[in-house]
Simulated assay, not measured.
Amino acid sequence: MRPLVEPGPELTDAQRERYSRHLLLPEVGETGQRRLLASRVLVVGAGGLGSPALLYLAAAGVGTIGVVDDDVVETSNLQRQVLHGSTDVGRAKVDSAADAVARLDPAITVVRHHERLTRDSAPRVVAGYDLVLDGSDTFETRYLVNDVLVAAGTPWVWGAVLRFDGHVSVFDPAGPTYRDLFPTAPPPGSVPSCGEAGVLGGVCAAVASVMVTEAVKLITGAGRPLLGRVLVHDALAMTWRELPLRPDPRRTGPEDLPTVTAAELLAAPGPVVVDVREPDERAAGAVPGSVHVPLAQVLADPSGLPPGPVVLHCARGSRSAQALRAVLSTGRTDVVHLEGGFAAWRAAGGPVG
């Protein structure tokens, strides 16, 4: 896959020292570390999987980390949720998580979403993130995350644990998704929860470490991601098996959206270009003459764009597709989005302001 995130500013001397072991890796290097620092990753759940994942994302230098969880820390969590300590019992998990990340690296921005994901709230919560790590522990939330991210065009890393077993995969709206792996939820009560069946803490760490490794690979473009593959971990036998996963041809994919390529836009300038990225992304480089309307603002008021024709763009095309769906729902027909986003614009030799 193409890297999810464009590189941010040049590294400082302090950052080169902190991330020196990453800089030694040819597959990451300085450019990859700048991508990590510019990235925005949302973690669903600050529990058994979210706890180690949040720490390793922060340690890797993911610049902005969102955490969504409506729960509080309980004593029974501490056996596996290593983000939290005894003094955090009774605190909101998002607050405990933010403090833990700050102790590790105060330069990392943590966005706290102290709420439960619902059909109404999820599109707002996921907006603006490049990647999502789903460590939720209910089928309801997993299917919700799947459906919202397919609609938003955002890739995600999924993990699940129970007893001594774990599963990990990478999903993308254009490829296999969670509904290809599990088309329908099991009957209520047929699958026990961790609270009913138990889970070994080390299994959470093993699965979460794979999830973070996949996140780093997706952000930097290193290696081969787990797209179309599911890893199955059996800690008792200490084995990892790989299962192939293909999109179900009966599944309805995301609708076709009108696009323009970077080459077409360069050859025929004239449309108003609207940048839906975040301010820090735009500060690192922008299409000259483009108008800045962040995604959250477009979603809040899809009818508020300049008169057309309009070309929407983000970093890679996922957020602009989400914005485009909202705008098209108002009845406008003179709006498209830039295929491949700002990354494609730069690759095509487009000027950068």
Rank of each mutant, 00 (worst) to 15 (best):
V5K: 04
E6M: 07
E6N: 14
P9K: 14
L11Y: 00
L11C: 04
E17I: 15
H22S: 11
L25T: 10
P26K: 11
V28M: 03
G32Y: 11
Q33D: 03
R34I: 02
R35W: 00
S39G: 14
V43A: 11
A53W: 09
A53K: 06
T64P: 07
G66T: 05
V68R: 06
D71S: 05
D88V: 09
K93P: 10
V101H: 05
L104D: 09
A107T: 15
V111E: 12
V111R: 12
V111W: 09
H113F: 13
H114W: 07
R116C: 06
S121V: 00
P123K: 13
R124A: 12
V132S: 02
S136F: 07
E140S: 12
L144E: 05
L144I: 14
V148I: 10
P155R: 08
D165S: 12
V168C: 03
G175Y: 11
P176S: 15
Y178T: 01
R179F: 10
T184C: 07
P188L: 00
G195E: 11
G195C: 11
E196S: 05
A197E: 03
G201M: 04
V203W: 03
V210H: 01
V210F: 02
V212P: 08
A215C: 09
I219E: 01
A222Q: 05
V232Y: 13
L236I: 13
L243S: 04
R246N: 01
T252K: 06
L257W: 02
T259Q: 08
A262Y: 00
A263K: 01
E264F: 14
A267N: 09
P271L: 05
V273Y: 03
R277S: 08
P279W: 11
E281Y: 13
G289L: 12
P294E: 02
S303P: 03
V311I: 09
G317D: 10
Q322V: 00
V336D: 05
L338K: 09
W345L: 05
A347Y: 12
G349K: 04
